Computed example of a mutant assay.
Amino acid sequence: MQLALLPRELTPDAVLAELQRRRGAVNGVTARDLVFVITGRVSSADERKLRDIIVKLRTDGHPICAHPALGYHFAATASELNDACVFLVQRAHTSLRQAAAMRHVALPDLYGQLGLIPPSTTEEPSE
């Protein structure tokens, strides 16, 4: 007799275990599907919790990639990890542009107020 797998709670360990089985962009999974695989249910609250867990896991150094077209997955190559990091930086820059516009300040001024170096001076030269 084979026992059915019981749904698990959405925890960092459960998310990490599932994503470690999904290496490479070809194995990406949407937030909704990832929540369902782990918990056996679908809810927007669980999807929000998943995103918070992903932030924690990334902050702990796990190479979790994501892109709207690819879903969540573990980086299989250095190139995938780099692409994911570039995507995150672009999203952050978009948010900063919005904040600058809402405050009616130039983006370079906002960077200065935040003590950040604008991306144009931190990017590596292209070959």
Rank of each mutant, 00 (worst) to 15 (best):
A17E: 14
N27C: 05
G112A: 15
L70G: 01
G61K: 06
R51H: 08
V86P: 02
Q2F: 12
S120K: 10
A101H: 14
V29I: 13
V15S: 03
A17R: 06
N82P: 02
A31C: 07
V15G: 03
A45S: 08
T11P: 07
S95P: 00
V35H: 03
R21S: 12
N27A: 13
D33C: 05
R48P: 00
P68H: 07
Y72Q: 02
L19N: 06
M102C: 07
T122G: 15
A25R: 02
R21Y: 05
V89N: 12
H67G: 11
F74Y: 14
P108I: 05
E80C: 12
A75C: 09
V35R: 05
E18T: 09
H104F: 09
V35D: 00
M1K: 11
V26P: 03
Q20N: 07
T39L: 08
D60V: 01
D52L: 14
H93Q: 11
D52Q: 07
N82V: 11
E127Y: 08
R103P: 08
P68D: 09
R32A: 06
E47W: 00
T121D: 14
L3G: 06
H73K: 04
V35G: 01
L70R: 06
L116D: 02
A75K: 07
T94E: 12
G71V: 01
T94L: 06
M102S: 15
P12S: 09
P118F: 03
A99E: 02
P63D: 09
R58I: 03
I54L: 13
D52C: 10
L6M: 12
D13E: 15
G24W: 08
E18P: 04
D33K: 13
H62Q: 10
